[in-house]
């Protein structure tokens, strides 16, 4: 629809409310982090950003987030496929509950996961006996991040898979392609932008995640301490400069991801004519 002139009122009111609210509650507070870090001398900033403890925390945060987001890709495809293509009792319930990790408060998720996977837990005990401790290791961090990231990937893929329908695959079948050829050459390439968007959303969320991780992580400096927790610890020690420096690194990574995500979403829209994901 082309716009000729503005017959609808309210643009100036709603736009000023939006911009005003964004400036007041989002932009000014976020600028404070950058402004505060600018007060630090370069040496001080670098000492905080590149201390061995900080480096170890980035390695864990980025590494575990990357592994978890990657693990969410096949899991997300599985759930999206089953929920979109199959009809079975409880499908609608599963469809609703798949968002539970997103709706659940992170502290509750953290405690719940720790209770299950700790060495005294239902699943943690047999695993620990088998020599695979989960809680208080990097594996526990990754597990919590998979839990948190899964709905993002499922919800990114589902609308695209739904809109794709059966027709392109039927065309492939009619033209003599095998089922595997159809899936590999038609279905997966169409879903790829949505999968990548979901994975990027899950990664972005995982990078900053705090509540669901701190209970299961163990929080040992240099070993199982994620970057958001390091910020928290430095704040509790009144090391505001150190906390801010680490926050700047994390913020820069998040902004970069947001830009990549916008590109990925535009790509998905181009490929499929629709926007992926409603929760991210």
């Amino acid at each position: 629809m082309r716009r000729r002139r503005d017959a609808l009122p309210g643009l100036s009111l709603t736009l000023s409310l939006t911009v005003g609210g964004l400036l007041l509650f989002i932009v000014v507070p976020l600028t404070t982090v950058v402004a505060t870090s600018a007060h630090l001398t370069a040496g001080r900033f670098w000492a905080a950003v590149a201390s061995p403890r900080a480096i170890a925390s980035y390695r864990l945060s980025f590494g575990a987030s990357l592994v978890a987001a990657a693990a969410c890709a096949p899991l997300g495809l599985l759930f999206a496929w089953v929920l979109t293509r199959y009809r079975f009792p409880g499908r609608r319930l599963l469809d609703a509950l798949i968002d539970l990790p997103f709706a659940l408060p992170t502290a509750v998720s953290g405690i719940a996961l720790t209770t299950v996977w700790a060495q005294t837990g239902w699943l943690g005990r047999p695993l620990a006996r088998a020599g695979v401790p989960v809680a208080f290791t990097a594996a526990g961090v990754t597990l919590a991040l998979i839990f948190i990231g899964l709905p993002f990937v499922v919800r990114a893929i589902m609308p695209v898979l739904d809109a794709l329908g059966h027709e392109p695959e039927e065309a492939g079948a009619v033209l003599g392609a095998s089922r595997w050829q159809t899936l590999a050459r038609i279905t997966l390439p169409t879903l790829l932008p949505a999968v990548l968007t979901g994975v990027a959303l899950a990664f972005a969320r995982a990078l900053g995640e705090y509540g669901s991780v701190v209970f299961i992580a163990g929080n040992l400096p240099l070993r199982t301490e994620i970057a958001p927790l390091l910020i928290m610890t430095k704040l509790e020690e009144y090391d505001y400069a150190g906390a801010t420096a680490v926050a700047v690194v994390l913020l820069a990574a998040s902004f970069l991801l947001l830009l990549v995500l916008n590109r990925a979403q535009a790509w998905t829209a181009e490929r499929t004519g629709m926007t992926a994901s409603r929760i991210g």
């Binding site: 507070p29 982090v33 705090y210 505001y240 998040s254 947001l258």
Partner: peptide, 25 residues
């Protein structure tokens, strides 16, 4: 489009940083 990105911004920021900004402010 830039405004929509700004609205999404809190989704991308770590909750810990969301608290930190108000301590700094």
């Amino acid at each position: 489009a830039a405004l929509i990105t700004l609205i999404d911004l809190p989704f991308a920021v770590s909750p810990v940083i969301s608290g930190l900004v108000f301590v700094l402010l």
